[in-house]
């Protein structure tokens, strides 16, 4: 007779992971066939998915530089996934070598990979924790060691909140995190939405179905719903906009139409 296990199930790499799929969209090889298969299926409905991911990366890079330009040099990047290139600590350090970064992900493989990449790095670390449990993040040894919560922190929630369903209480999670941060802290956020996608909602819904099938439901929220995440902060110019439109440093008209899917914004805690 099989005995019940005492601990949650271990790592199952036969199940697609959203962070490894994200790496695949970005042209990386930090992924397995299951991930590529799911990603290709998602791309059948939305061929421009890689463009959306690139727009996310590019926005994050501009937002990180904006933070450093405004003397916010501590970063808490939740849902950081698999570090490839242009990671927050790399971008931040080109502007300020003393910048400190704590990455957070709940995917054990992404965490193990981040740990390998960050080995020996004094100013950056990774925490295995879930956005659904902000206390696990805020009271982690890495956050206590690297971040001074008395000073402003840039909280990065890039392409992650749309993986939290309403019953996961995403608004409460963001509020709990912001409550722990000092005034002047920044909320850097992107979120998937049916608004802005150059496709019918029906076709884009095919991609949503793929994510539902791999048990990582993608929750499309409206612009109004996404704005609610910024409660308690003041959205800085230009507000909540499609990703390429947030303080662009190259002509917006050169961007791929897919890059305008979803929303990006930065809020400043009063």
């Amino acid at each position: 007779m099989e005995r019940p296990a005492w601990a949650p199930p271990g790592i199952d790499i036969s199940v697609p992971s959203v962070s490894r799929m994200y790496d695949f969209y970005l042209g990386g090889s930090h992924n397995f066939e299951v991930d590529r298969e799911a990603a290709r299926k998602a791309m059948e409905f939305m061929p421009g998915l890689p463009k959306i991911m690139q727009a996310n990366r590019a926005f994050m890079r501009r937002a990180v530089r904006h933070a450093v330009d405004n003397d916010v040099t501590q970063f808490l990047d939740i849902g950081s996934g698999i570090p490839t290139f242009g990671n927050v600590h790399e971008v931040a350090r080109t502007a300020d070598p003393a910048a400190r970064v704590v990455y957070v992900d709940h995917d054990p493989v992404a965490v193990a990979h981040s740990r390998a990449v960050l080995e020996g790095d004094e100013g950056a670390a990774v925490v295995a924790a879930d956005l659904r449990k902000p206390a696990d993040i805020l009271y982690s040894p890495e956050v206590s060691r690297l971040l001074d919560l008395e000073r402003p922190v840039a909280l990065l929630l890039v392409a992650v909140l749309h993986f939290l369903e309403d019953e996961d209480r995403p608004y409460e999670a963001v509020t709990e995190l912001l409550d722990a941060l000092a005034p002047g802290s920044l909320l850097v956020l992107t979120h998937a939405s049916y608004e802005g996608i150059p496709l019918s909602e029906e076709q884009a819904g095919g991609t949503v179905g793929v994510y539902r099938n791999i048990r990582n439901p993608l929750v499309m929220r409206s612009g109004a719903e996404i704005t609610r995440f910024f409660e308690g902060t003041e959205l800085i110019e230009p507000g909540l906009v499609p990703m390429p439109g947030w303080r662009p440093d190259s002509p917006v008209e050169e961007e791929d139409p897919y890059a305008f899917s979803g929303f990006a914004g930065v809020g400043r805690k009063a």
């Binding site: 790592i11 790499i13 490894r20 090889s29 930090h30 992924n31 397995f32 698999i82 054990p108 493989v109 992404a110 965490v111 193990a112 990979h113 740990r115 390998a116």
Partner: peptide, 8 residues
């Protein structure tokens, strides 16, 4: 990534 999966 295989090494990371293994170590995870």
């Amino acid at each position: 990534i295989a090494r990371s999966a293994l170590s995870a």
